[in-house]
């Protein structure tokens, strides 16, 4: 009984968003596409800091009659561990959705919360996407905020370079 009370105390004191898998890849694609089973997958060369891992891009008909679009699934390093995230863009590169699929660290998980992720919506290639100016920081989650922001900006650049190939 004492142990349970201590556990409850510990969980109650700990920060809101916690480490864990929030969405599987299939669940994430189901949020993005009308027919997630019918999407095309591309494995693209990645860039730092995840240069060793392939960047995944999926193309298909977006949900809600948004036409064809792309969902990128990538990872960035938070402080020590990778954060797996998805960015969904329309055919003209507008960001429609940012989701965190898996967060692996004890602290900094506030990037998983919707109000922070919504700051990216509507951004397009060429828009300024910088942590601290265009995208607000969250105290206590600085590195996660910075690195996810850098990751989203990187994906828009990759979109510009690869859109013809991906949306062909």
């Amino acid at each position: 009984m004492k142990n349970c009370a201590l556990l409850l105390l510990v969980l109650g004191l700990a920060p809101g968003a916690r480490a864990g898998q929030y969405l599987s890849q299939d669940e994430a694609l189901a949020l993005a596409f009308e027919k997630p089973g019918a999407v095309r997958r591309f494995d693209l060369p990645n860039r730092k800091p995840m240069a060793e891992e392939k960047l995944k891009a999926f193309t298909g008909e977006l949900k809600g009659g948004g036409g064809r679009g792309i969902a990128f699934i990538d990872a960035v390093i938070g402080k020590h561990e990778p954060i797996t995230y998805m960015v969904v863009v329309s055919a003209d590169g507008e960001i429609l959705r940012v989701e965190i699929l898996e967060y692996r660290e004890t602290y900094g998980g506030q990037v998983c919360e919707e109000p922070w992720r919504k700051q990216f919506l509507g951004k397009k290639p060429g828009d300024s996407i910088h942590h601290g100016t265009d995208i607000n920081n969250i105290a206590g989650a600085t590195l996660s905020c910075r690195h996810v922001t850098e990751g989203v900006a990187k994906l828009l650049k990759i979109f510009e370079e690869k859109k013809a190939e991906l949306l062909r």
Binding site: V10, L13, A14, P15, G16, Y107, G140, A141
Partner: peptide, 20 residues
């Protein structure tokens, strides 16, 4: 601070709110 890169020197950042 929370995680320590050093054992004698402290860094200036602190634990997040609610961090234990």
């Amino acid at each position: 601070a929370g995680e320590r890169m050093f054992t004698y020197v402290y860094e200036s950042d602190t634990l997040p709110e609610g961090g234990l």
